[in-house]
Design a protein around this nucleic acid. Sequence first.
DNA 1: AGAGGCATTATTATCGATAATTTTATTTTT
DNA 2: AAAAATAAAATTATCGATAATAATGCCTCT
Lengths: 246, 246
Amino acid sequence: MARNTGDDDSAPTQDRVIARLLIDDIVAWRIPPGAWIREREIAARFAVSHAPVREAFRQVANIGLLKVVPWRGAFVIDLDQHAADEVYELWKALFGVACRLACAEMSDRDGRELMHRLVEYKDVTLRTENTFEHLNVSNRIGRFIAKRSNAPLALELLDRVALLARWQHNVYTNSYIETHGNEAARRSAALYETLCRHIVARDGDAADAAARALIGVTQESFEQALEEYKARHAKPRASRRRAKSA
Amino acid sequence: MARNTGDDDSAPTQDRVIARLLIDDIVAWRIPPGAWIREREIAARFAVSHAPVREAFRQVANIGLLKVVPWRGAFVIDLDQHAADEVYELWKALFGVACRLACAEMSDRDGRELMHRLVEYKDVTLRTENTFEHLNVSNRIGRFIAKRSNAPLALELLDRVALLARWQHNVYTNSYIETHGNEAARRSAALYETLCRHIVARDGDAADAAARALIGVTQESFEQALEEYKARHAKPRASRRRAKSA
DNA sequence: AGAGGCATTATTATCGATAATTTTATTTTT
DNA sequence: AAAAATAAAATTATCGATAATAATGCCTCT
């Protein structure tokens, strides 16, 4: 009678493929903030009708990168300094929830795997100053915790907020990498260690606090990068304006 | 050149109307958990084509009450004791973020209005034992804080989680009202007072903690109601099963 | 010249029909 | 009778076309 409600293993439908590609395009700033996207344009690009495009728009809008307004279409969201604070606060809170739940949900076996990954992470930290690799391996730990927290809704919201954060600082990527590379890495390493220890010790409150501190490092790096970006771009703009009025 | 990206003031399109009504139906348990909903069925009910129904399904799915799986359709989510913990943890965290941000964002005027509402709330608490009215006025305070926190994304996620929580305990509504009415009201009142005081004092950490404690009261009431519900329904089921096997 | 109204154009929303896929029922085989 | 294969039915996904709406440019009037 009831159909199989289980997990989806079939090939993805077109709307999901398109949504994925749109997300990539927006996060990578190939589509600028505030841009107005037309159905026909995207439909032509993927050689499909507009129906799947509409659904893709809705999916991207649900993640928060697109804003769909009736009869007017879809707009990429705008960059907003104030919203950055909100995103990072949410990120801290949601990652905290994931870690808190992980304390209760993780098996002892998962805990051992977590500590194993921590060792791997510290190795990378000591071996290289490559910030990309650094971010990569640290993200792996975060995702592992979130997955094992057995909290699908928290995981979904976490992915969403992390995506928004990534989009936000992709403008400042260069500054970010430079800034984050030096001292933040060491602080992160220490915080990851305390976080993992609290999780295997099943201390939810302490894990939550460590998680918040960890995202806080990223937040500080972002803010610092933003300042540097502003400082770098303050002069060119002023000169351009002067040239205009001359 | 660029179109009006501002707020939406036009009449809602059909898909949004349908989505709203579907949400109501699901939250009120007029559509049972796990139910499989067909496009044609809903389309016939609202005398529309299936296109707006599809979009409505996607919107409800984004809130989390519906799960859309390719080629198989839309299913109402299932009741899951484990998921309840997750929802309440998220609720605590998100309301905490809203209160934290409210500390920074609220004007002094907003703070005075908040304290005014607190007085109103305490009056209601003293005057009546009516739990509905009690929940109503307390929700008003929560929503006021969330709105003035100037954090649209947090507000959206908060609404979403609160809706899921409401759906979850709508099964046990009767027990919930009974349980919540007695002692929890007094605890909530004290916690609301400390929360508001921390907010006007702009102490983010303290406000966050108070917010968590406040949702914690609701969580405890829910869990207690769940226990009572289980106890009440344990016997009838057993007898029914015995009758079947006889 | 500028403001306001009107027609034009472009775009989204909805519809009805067809294609692709899954589920259910039937038949066949062992 | 049970299991596998097959056919039938039901359902979703996609398409192309039409209706509804918003933005744009033109024209008139002052």
